[in-house]
């Protein structure tokens, strides 16, 4: 947890002189979706923090697990208390790199993003396609990928095993603005 903090702050403040190389959002969107025969479960987080260093293409993302909003209060409660144990692991983080960032432009806006996703204290390498929209006043990243619940040592009680998918679809949309 401390490590990712350092990465975010290093990305933000290390090259203090080149602040225009940093793009940041505090209102990024990440959601996950679980489909099962019994029910569909979706949760949205609109308070995701993400920083891109445009020189290196490095990216650091942090989000609070308790910021995931569910339709049903009971699901949100079970999610935080029993499954991801937010009192122990309040944040999920991603630290990685946008591949060939400097080659991206309006025509060529598809690339890959690789890095380490940490949820519930468990790390997992992620490599996924990403759409990068570069404008003068912003950089928007969009994409989705699948993760296995088991990879993050999240225990789902057998009584609700049929309600929750083994594989969860994660969708993200992060609209960064220049960091001043």
């Amino acid at each position: 947890m401390k490590k990712i903090h350092l990465i975010v702050f290093a990305l933000l403040f290390y090259h203090g002189i080149n602040a225009q190389d940093k793009f940041l959002t505090k209102e990024g969107y990440v959601s996950f979706f679980s489909h099962s025969l019994v029910e569909d479960i979706k949760a949205d987080n609109n308070q995701v923090l993400s920083v891109i260093d445009t020189v290196t293409g490095k990216i650091a993302i942090q989000m609070l697990m308790r910021s995931f909003m569910f339709k049903k209060a009971l699901m949100q409660e079970h999610f935080n208390e029993n499954y991801v144990e937010s009192y122990k692991y309040p944040k999920a983080t991603f630290s990685g790199e946008i591949i060939n960032f400097s080659d991206l432009n309006e025509e060529n806006d598809e690339t890959e993003i690789i890095g380490t996703l940490t949820v519930h204290g468990e790390e997992k390498e992620i490599r996924t396609k990403v759409n990068v929209e570069i404008r003068e006043d912003g950089i928007r990243l969009k994409g989705d990928f699948n993760v296995d619940v088991a990879d993050f040592k999240i225990k789902i009680p057998s009584i609700v095993a049929n309600n929750i998918a083994k594989t969860i679809k994660v969708t993200f949309e992060l609209d960064h603005k220049p960091y001043k």
């Binding site: 609070l64 910021s67 909003m69």
Partner: peptide
């Protein structure tokens, strides 16, 4: 309150 990143977040 949902926690703290660079800022405290409230929903």
């Amino acid at each position: 309150c949902t926690g703290y990143l660079m800022d405290v977040i409230m929903v």
